[in-house]
Amino acid sequence: MNLILRPLEALGHAFLNLLAALGRISIYAGSTLRHIFKRPFYARELAIAILNVGWLSLPVVGLTALFTGAALALQIYAGGARFNAEAVVPQIVAIGMVRELGPVLVGLMIAARVTSSIAAEIATMKVTEQIDALVTLSTHPMQYLTVPRVLAGLICVPVLVGVGDVIGILGGYTVAVATLDFNSSTYLVNTFDFLEIRDVVSSLAKGAVFGVIATLMGCYYGMNSGRGAQGVGAATKGSVEAAAILILAANFVLTWVFFSL
């Protein structure tokens, strides 16, 4: 009997823990939202967060998009050749980058670069009592640390997604024109004729949601880190795992929503 019950018990515990974690994250997100509208507003912290989340992420986002767009063009060309559909490369690269790969890859790169950095920084602040020091200096950690970072994610990641979409399309264009004998102007005309406004809107909307998820997870795990180096390491790892999974789950939900519109 135990052989049957124990796995079920473990499954039940895991499910309850997942629900509890989602509950805590939801409460944290709600608290962040409330503090966005409270004073004081830390403009300097927001500017620093925008620099870190947005500007300094541009190289990694650009390179990721460039290579992905280029590889996508090659894949579509090779796959399309099996049923004489090589000509659809511009359209599929455009729709693939803008609707799916651009936002998801940028989201995941932000999770890797920004979420981990935020979690490690805030967790270290917690371990070294800097968060307690903030409180004793009459500064709410949620307003000083979380709100600027989450706002930076909300503002910057859609911009990064837009930039990533353009660079990804350019990567596909470069490969197609340089190695697959596509005509330059025809490629560009086919790309822009095929894309619709709602493709771009869905891409940027996904970017905004992923930006909030990535920064919020960094802050949440940092603020709730355990003690010592192990605590900081666990917080960093947990934040990236949670951000990546939530970004992929949110991508599915958002794609479903945009498809049904």
């Binding site: 070294t128 009592e129 800097q130 020091a133 004793t136």
Partner: peptide, 10 residues
């Protein structure tokens, strides 16, 4: 408050 490790903001 003076914290044990200083708790200065890096």
């Amino acid at each position: 408050m003076l914290f044990q490790g200083g708790a200065l903001f890096d």
